[in-house]
């Protein structure tokens, strides 16, 4: 209980103190209220715009696919697209929050167990993913449910899937980041990383908008064929790479409460396994993070040397 309280306190401080959750504007500006209102309006507009865009596209697609009895493939499409986006953004978030955040060295002299720090950083990363999921995936799933008069357990499944779906791709992303940081130098440079991640975000957003809008250019039959084959391929691929995708889809397309709950339980179990099995590599990972943040060049090379020698326990000690 005390550990949870401490972890949450740390997560709040990191979130607020580094300005990660800052929508209050720049307090140094004279007219900070104007800045605050501007931020709220801009972020609100973006969230509403994206929600409406995804909601309307869900409505259109359902109308196209329902006569052919293929509307359930939309669930596979949403879940698969969601995990791919969560995974890609997860890589960016993990690098930025675990590596490029400047608070690590300041926290090292404090009596904080490494588990608290990992948990706090993971909570922040997950929060970002949830914001993304709520804006991009929840509207089409709700539109799908409301237009199809789905049963109560569908909406319950939406809530649980939204809660659990980011965990597995996020865990895979964080382990991948550990490998990227271990073996490639490109993401260590903060400026270069910001540029690449900015381009990636822009590219994904652009691809999403183009894909959504270009669907109107297809005839109904072509669109059905395209979606059927495309979604099958995508779902098959994501189900292999991200365990849990099939369970999430099954929960959302279940025809009874019992089968929905069974699928949700399977998803919860897989998420728990992913979370637990990624914990140990994560400890090594966060030790590597501290290397990146030690301000002196000598310190960095010292820790790099430690890692190259495979003496990870020594580096792990940094966060004890």
């Amino acid at each position: 209980m005390r550990g949870i309280k401490r972890t949450l306190s740390l997560a709040c401080v990191m979130l607020k103190g580094n300005g990660l959750a800052n929508i209050n504007g720049d307090s140094r500006k004279k007219n900070k209220w104007l800045s605050k209102a501007g931020n709220f309006i801009l972020l609100g507009f973006l969230a509403v715009y994206m929600s409406v865009l995804t909601g309307v596209s869900a409505l259109t697609l359902r109308r196209v696919l329902e006569p052919a009895g293929l509307h359930q493939i939309l669930i596979g499409l949403y879940v698969s697209v969601a995990v791919v986006f969560i995974f890609l953004f997860g890589i960016v978030y993990v690098i930025s929050i675990f590596y490029h955040s400047s608070d690590t060295e300041k926290l090292l002299p404090l009596p904080l167990k490494p588990d608290y720090m990992i948990s706090a950083k993971l909570i922040i990363t997950a929060l970002y993913e949830y914001v993304f999921v709520i804006v991009l995936i929840v509207p089409p799933l709700l539109v799908y449910g409301l237009t199809g008069n789905e049963a109560w357990y569908y909406f319950f499944s939406v809530a649980v899937v939204v809660l659990l779906l980011p965990i597995i791709p996020l865990c895979i992303a964080s382990v991948m980041v550990m490998l990227i940081m271990r073996f490639t130098p490109f993401a260590r440079n903060k400026d270069r990383f910001s540029m690449i991640s900015g381009l990636l975000a822009m590219g994904l957003a652009l691809a999403f908008i183009i894909a959504t809008q270009s669907m109107s250019a297809f005839s109904q039959e072509d669109l059905i064929l395209l979606l059927q084959s495309g979604v099958q391929d995508l779902s098959g691929l994501t189900a292999v790479v991200f365990p849990g995708v099939s369970a999430a889809s099954a929960a959302l397309t279940a025809d009874s409460a019992v089968s929905a709950l069974s699928a949700l339980l399977l998803l919860a179990a897989l998420s728990a396994i992913a979370l637990l099995s990624h914990w140990q590599p994560q400890k090594v990972f966060i030790s590597k993070v501290s290397w990146d943040f030690l301000p002196h060049r000598q310190n960095r090379s010292s820790l790099l040397k430690t890692f190259c020698a495979g003496n990870r326990s020594q580096a792990v000690h940094l966060l004890r």
Binding site: V13, K16, G17, N18, G19, N22
Partner: peptide
Amino acid sequence: DPDIFPRL
């Protein structure tokens, strides 16, 4: 270096 959590 006393720079920590500037927005707190």
